[in-house]
Amino acid sequence: MAVHKPVALLSGLALIALSACSPQAQDDIAREAARRAVTPVVQDKFPGVPVEPAVNCVIDNANSTQIGALALDAVTGPTESTVEIVTQIISKPETVTCLATDGLAAILN
């Protein structure tokens, strides 16, 4: 798939800006960007699930490679790859436990 020049330019500028940040700041920025890609997937593929707790569970249980891929998807918009990554993360036992704990609490409150 060809990357459009504006998207490539924005991605390049984002990488330059991130390189000036501390590792913790880079991680925080990547996680926030990943949230923007995960949210519409959760809303679309998992209707009825409390969105914010579910997104938190996905982000908290994603590995650094998954966070990076999801953060890039926030620039271009969710793709089938985004859905695949989110589904992989949601299938992890740790994520299921998080969803059962945090998601259920959100429903009951």
Results as ranks from 00 to 15, higher is better:
Pro47Tyr: 00
Thr82Trp: 06
Ile85Gly: 02
Pro53Asn: 08
Thr65Cys: 06
Val41Trp: 03
Pro53Ser: 01
Gln26Asp: 00
Val83Asp: 06
Pro93Cys: 07
Arg35Met: 09
Val96Thr: 11
Thr65Pro: 01
Cys21Arg: 15
Val58His: 04
Leu18Lys: 12
Thr101His: 04
Ser91Val: 03
Pro47His: 05
Asp60Glu: 15
Phe46Met: 07
Ile90Val: 15
Cys57Ser: 06
Asp27Gly: 02
Lys45Arg: 14
Val83Met: 05
Gly48Val: 05
Val58Asn: 04
Arg31Lys: 15
Val41Gln: 09
Pro50Leu: 02
Cys21Asn: 11
Leu18His: 11
Ala71Asn: 01
Val75Trp: 03
Thr79Lys: 10
Thr101Val: 08
Pro47Thr: 11
Lys45Asp: 12
Val86Leu: 03
Leu72His: 09
Val86Pro: 00
Ile67Tyr: 02
Gln66Arg: 06
Thr97Gln: 11
Asn56Thr: 12
Thr95Leu: 09
Ile89Gln: 09
Asp73Tyr: 05
Ala74Tyr: 00
Arg35Trp: 11
Glu80Cys: 06
Asp102Arg: 13
Gln66His: 10
Glu84Asn: 14
Ile59Trp: 02
Glu80His: 06
Asn63Phe: 09
Thr95Ile: 10
Arg31Leu: 01
Arg35Gly: 09
Ser91Ala: 15
Thr79Glu: 10
Ala74Asn: 05
Cys98Met: 07
Pro47Glu: 10
Asp102Phe: 13
Gly48Asp: 06
Pro23Gly: 09
Leu99Pro: 02
Ile90Ser: 11
Asn61Ile: 07
Val38Asp: 01
Asn63Ile: 12
Ala100Gln: 13
Val42Gln: 06
Pro78Tyr: 03
Thr79Gln: 13
Ile90Gly: 06
Val86Ser: 01
Asp27Met: 14
Lys45Val: 09
Thr95Glu: 06
Gly48Gln: 04
Asn61Lys: 05
